[in-house]
Each structure stands twice: as structure tokens, then as C-alpha cells.
Amino acid sequence: MRYILRKFGLLLLTLWAAVTLNYALPRLMPGSPADAAVAKLSQNGPVAPSTRAAIEAQLGVPTGSWWHQYTQYLDNVVHLRFGVSYTFFPQSVSSMVGQALPWTLVMVGLVTVLAFVVGSLIGVAAAWRRGTWLDSLPTLSGAFLAAFPYFWTALLLVFFVGYVFGWFPTSGAYSADAVPNLSFGFVGDSLYHAVLPALTILITSLGGWILGMRNTMIGTIGEDYVTFAEANGLRGRTVALRYAARNALLPNLTGFGMALGGVVGGSLLVEQVFNYPGVGHLLYSAVTNHDYPLMQALFLMITVCVLVANFIVDVLYGVLDPRTRR
């Protein structure tokens, strides 16, 4: 319990540091957006001070001491006020992010967890039956599939499964005529739309988990405690899962934490290919449209996700490995 509190304190501290950096970095850059605009205008002749003042007012250049600005910024962050989007004016940034986030979190998040669980289980089985087809088949195909660039896998799926066979929709998160709500019909419809992007992520990330788990598992199978458990006549399944796999899991958790942290930011290309209205898709349009408020909010959110994922993994470590609790 004390361990979790300590880790939570650490999470708050790093969160604060991340937010502060996010505040400080743009302000440390020389010049201001108003300068850039004025410079552009001055190519056509002298710019009146009133014009400059107008530009500043329009951009909302902040006033007051840095401390005042900083506290105000913190206050805004806490209340999720990130300003108004340039591209989707007059929608607020937080409502844009709020619409995109659930799609990414649910679709990519669930698939990431699923890939980890399934991949690790296959890895355990492969290592336990080392040298049989149960080992060579997943290991080889895993390595093969993991070698594909995932946007290419996505394109293949779009073309064959979506276009040639027409089994699954190739674009969007739900049918054009559907109204988002929590009815069975709508959830079914969105699951149907999520199949292809989810499959893409599953196919490309599964191999890594299989290989990673298989390799650490082969290491733990050689440990004395596994031999000793066998010598004591424990059932094969107990030895494989509670003794070998349980310990082999620990180093892979770190990778899982990184994958979880990457859920929000890392699905850009997949969402782009499938025109999926998630965070990646939003980030892409923010970048192409120079939508700074949106970008800033998204970057901050990606950072927060990585930190929260790390916290989750730290807690998992505490639960799974008694040695870290001390």
C-alpha cells in the first residue's frame, strides 16, 4: 500500500514537471507569433503600431507576470481549458479531444492489451513445448508478420478484406447514418467498423509479444526453481504457469507499459489509413493545419498517457513481484 502511494506521489510529481515543461518550452523560444505576423506584413510596407496591437489582441498574447501566467495556465489545465481550435472553429480543443479519445482508447487500448495477453500466452506455450510445431509455427510466423510495416499491413487488409471481398468496412468508426449512442445496434456497428484497424494492430504487434515472452520464458525454464518444482512432482501446468511464466512475465511488463503509453500517440498511421476518428487522426489534422492549441493539448495528453501507463505498470510490478515492494 505504501508502495502504491509512493508511486502515485511520483506520478503527480512527474505530471507537474511535464505540464510545466509544456508551459515553459514554447515561452523560451525567441520571438512571438505576433512578431511573425508583423514581419510578414512589413514586407509590403511599414506596419502601424495599432496593427500590431490588433494582431496581439487577436492572438490573445498574455499579459501579467510569468507567475500569474503560469498559475493561470495550471488552472486552465486542471479545468481542461485548452482554448479554441483554429481549424474546427468555434469548437473548443477539449471537446475535440473528448470526441476522439474514446475511440482510440477503446479500440487501440483493448487491442494492445489483447495482443499482450494472447501473444504472451502463445509465447509461454511455444517455450514450454520448445522444438515442437507449437514452438516453430508461432515463432516463425510471428517474426514474419512483425517484419511488415504496419501501415502496409493496413493497406493490404483494406484492399483484400475490405475492397475485394467486402467483408468489413474500410473507413470510419461507424456507419454514416448512425447516431452515436450506447444502444446495442450502435455498439455492434462500431465493433464491426473496428475489426480491420484492430486486426492490423493485432497482427503487427502480436509477433513481438510472442518472441519476447518465448525468449524470457526459455530463460526461466532453465532456472533452478523450475527444475526443483518438476523434481517435486508438481503438475506440468502449475510449473509452466505459476513458476516459469509468472517469472518470465516480469521483464515483459516494461515493454507492455511502453506499448500502453504509446496507445494514444502511436496509432496515427492506422487511424489515417482507416479514416478512424481517433486521437491519431486528430493529431494528423492538427499538424497539417498548424492548429497549435490542438497540438499542444494533444501532446500534453500523450505525455499524460505515457505517465499513467507507467504508473499502472509500476503498480502491476508491485502486485506481481514481492521484491519490488520493499
Binding site: D224, Y225, N232, L234, T238, R242, Y243, N247, L250, R323
Partner: peptide
């Protein structure tokens, strides 16, 4: 290294008793 680092001594006994 003959003992599983993530299980208590009691669990080790319980595993054996359960297996047989």
C-alpha cells in the same frame, strides 16, 4: 535459486501438497 522468488514459502508447500 531453488525457490520461486514470487511465491511465499507457504505456497511452495501448498503446491506440493496439492499436486500429490
Amino acid at each position: 535459486n531453488a525457490l520461486n522468488p514470487v511465491r511465499t514459502v507457504g505456497h511452495h508447500f501448498a503446491d506440493i501438497f496439492a499436486a500429490h
